[in-house]
Write a protein that binds this DNA or RNA. Sequence first.
DNA 1: TTGTAAGCGTTATCAA
DNA 2: TTGATAACGCTTACAA
Lengths: 339, 339
Amino acid sequence: MSRPQPQKRATVHDIAAAAGMSRGTVSRVLNGGYVSAEARAAIEAAMSDLGYVPNNAARALKMRRSQAVAFVALEPHSLFLDDPNIGSIMLGANAALSLADHQMVSLVVESARDTERVARYLSGGFVDGAIVVSARTKDPIIRVISDLSLPAAFVGHPPDLDQTIPFVGIDNVGSARAITEHLVTTGRRRIGMIAAALDRDSGIDRLAGFRDALGPLFDDELVSDVPHYDYGSGVKGMRDLLEREPAIDGVFAASDAIAAGALEALREAGRSVPGDVGVVGFDDSTWAVRCQPQLTTVHQPAKEIGSCAAQLILRQLRGEHPDPGGQLLPTPLVLRDSA
Amino acid sequence: MSRPQPQKRATVHDIAAAAGMSRGTVSRVLNGGYVSAEARAAIEAAMSDLGYVPNNAARALKMRRSQAVAFVALEPHSLFLDDPNIGSIMLGANAALSLADHQMVSLVVESARDTERVARYLSGGFVDGAIVVSARTKDPIIRVISDLSLPAAFVGHPPDLDQTIPFVGIDNVGSARAITEHLVTTGRRRIGMIAAALDRDSGIDRLAGFRDALGPLFDDELVSDVPHYDYGSGVKGMRDLLEREPAIDGVFAASDAIAAGALEALREAGRSVPGDVGVVGFDDSTWAVRCQPQLTTVHQPAKEIGSCAAQLILRQLRGEHPDPGGQLLPTPLVLRDSA
DNA sequence: TTGTAAGCGTTATCAA
DNA sequence: TTGATAACGCTTACAA
């Protein structure tokens, strides 16, 4: 009955005409302002009659606000497929933005073509800010954002070049140190690490924490260096370690996925966990509980990270300047069965 | 040197002034049209001087085209966290849209609040079309799309109500039948299924294919029904099956993640795979190769599904009417070690 | 409380 | 080939 004509969409103008009011008044019922009860009623009737839906492009043009925030995932091929946290971070960010009535839109940057297009998109007024995840030190997107002075927040350490962009993350060094110390405390002596993503701050920092905790026990030979935080890398890294040091009795895997892979390699080598070798991971992702044995690991508060990043943006949109230096969220150890 | 003033952004007007040309000419160099070499040079110089970046909102308002397509993920909490295919589908869609110079923006619908906001977003002119994944039969978003007659494409079976929206998917019934037949062919006789998501077409269809393939061998008692396509459900479903029929010798898991869980439960029950029990999965996701033994499964061409969906949108944007009834992509069997 | 009118940054039509 | 000028749909002073 009240189905609108499908093709041409009703505008404020049409509503005004139908309701016998002026455009200004229509806009006022839309945005809140002085308007009489009768006027409001007539206009609302006209709106639902004609199936009015406001045109965001026009509104954004006028208001210079789109009520949308981008969630930019750099190199998602490895991200979405391997990182079980990215989904939770997104969901956390979305929830926080949703509460503030902002639309989160995620953009994927996979190719040079994408980079350029996303840069245009970010500068074009379709979004009011951007959450950037997994930035490498000199990503072109970052230039664009800082040139534009678009409100932004990084997830993870910010690239060196721009200290003006706030970030939210965890203390990778401290967490890695703590989980490694657990290995030491429980009596392990020949402790190795499967380090990953050494071109990213998270990777570098986890290795630093490991080295730190071990002190004199640290042995360069016992660090296997793999490219990604994924299962396959874990299998490979562990095989590598076993070959280099058959007497290894403890392993810190740079992520739970890697730890799961390590478990597989250990099983295939006939080592028991935690009997022969203690294994610890990082993330407390779904991997941790689907392993056998379940992983002792570092809990990463992914959802909170997402919502903090969102808050960082929202605060800037309100005109507040967030404290520089970023925000580090706590990362409790989770003790399970693998060490 | 050529750093633009950070706050106020240059407009076509400014460029025109700086280059001593009219706005029309500037627009012409932007969009292609007759313009002399000198004029072009002057204008391009002015643009890079002032750091010009076009305003999308204004362009969208005028052109009625945003060059953006939404990728709408319904109930992502289970999706992103459990479904290893969703990432590949997104990436496939993005790649195809990217080639056509369209920006893919993914939207997440988790709450009623999200539903409403996303509906507004879709209707507001910020996107030219929408790819919808994992729609349940009567999702409000679908109403909105069809009321708006927004160019759209579904991933998976379309909900009954609207036959005008094209879709891309796979033949779940046929694939399930084929993989089940493999179990029969290899000599299994007491074959069970861990069925999931029976409120979704994919879930229903996979069960139908299973029943179909088994014919007289089918036994209602040997179907365990779990809510989601995830690992935990697989563990539970398999335990359930083992309890109901200790002599079970074949299992069709509705997804690879479920199959991985089933493997775990079988290990814990002391059954060998494929010796005592043959197990097959569905998806050919990363799960399939990280299991021990690796899974025999149905390959789902996730990337192609994404890019087909994108094509479906692009075609509509060109004014073509895609053939109704949708498009089914082939799903070869992948024989590995689990059955 | 309501109407009028200007303008947000583009593109497009039409003359020149 | 180029320059005015009128939209696109909306918000917002300012006036009434």
